[in-house]
Amino acid sequence: MALPPLDSPQWQSPWRAFIWGLRSITQTILTVVLFVTYLGIGALAHDTNFSLAWALASTLFVWAGPAQIILITTLGSGATIIQSAIAVTVSAIRLFPMVVSVLPLMRTPTTKRRELFFAAHLTAVTLWVECHRFLPQVPRERRIAFVHGLGFGLVSVCLTANTIGYFLAANLTQTLGAAILLLTPLSFLFSTARNSREVADVVALVLGVLLYPLAAKMNSGLDILVSGVVAGTIAYGVHWWREVRA
């Protein structure tokens, strides 16, 4: 499936754009990866004694795989609500620059802030990656509808996966459970690496991975924040230095 050309009459209706967005979930391996990741989250929720409704509500309202895994794992291992909330808040900081960088791709001079509400809610790593890939092929005034379709499709896939994973959990061996949990870091690592076109992105990714274990030794509870800001700032420094020399 290829998207219609930018000047095609196919793009005249926002509803059509929504459908094109929905259909685009079949055009990316990340949909399969999300499916299996959320299969794992459903299984993890079951094993940690959360209800199916809880797992589905977390997917619908949190909509961030790493945050959901951190939330389930910390609450399941006996952390307090406050400790879990801090860990999740820190892991979710990355959503802020994602939203900041993705919304300008959809905005037109007449777009109101409230029209971007659902696009902001749907923004997570997969949608962020796919927006940068798909949106240049979508006329600007139809991008919000397209993203709504894409997000609706991805959320539906994940809710289905959660439900299947939840019921599979009783039958999953420990090794298969581990294999499903390993999908999350592998898929996030490679999808981010594939989207890293500029040197700054690569430096941020590599340093972010390498600095985390060092930051974790400080045991401040803000490890991810510390390693992220340091690695990201060094990456920005590399970008800045290259710009100055160019």
Binding site: S91, I93, L95, L211, Y212, S227, G228, Y236
Partner: peptide, 18 residues
């Protein structure tokens, strides 16, 4: 450019943490 680099690095941290 800076916030995107930080976002990428924080995600990298989550990957490393898991």
């Amino acid at each position: 450019v800076w916030v995107r680099a930080v976002a990428t690095a924080i995600l990298a941290g989550v990957i490393a943490q898991i």
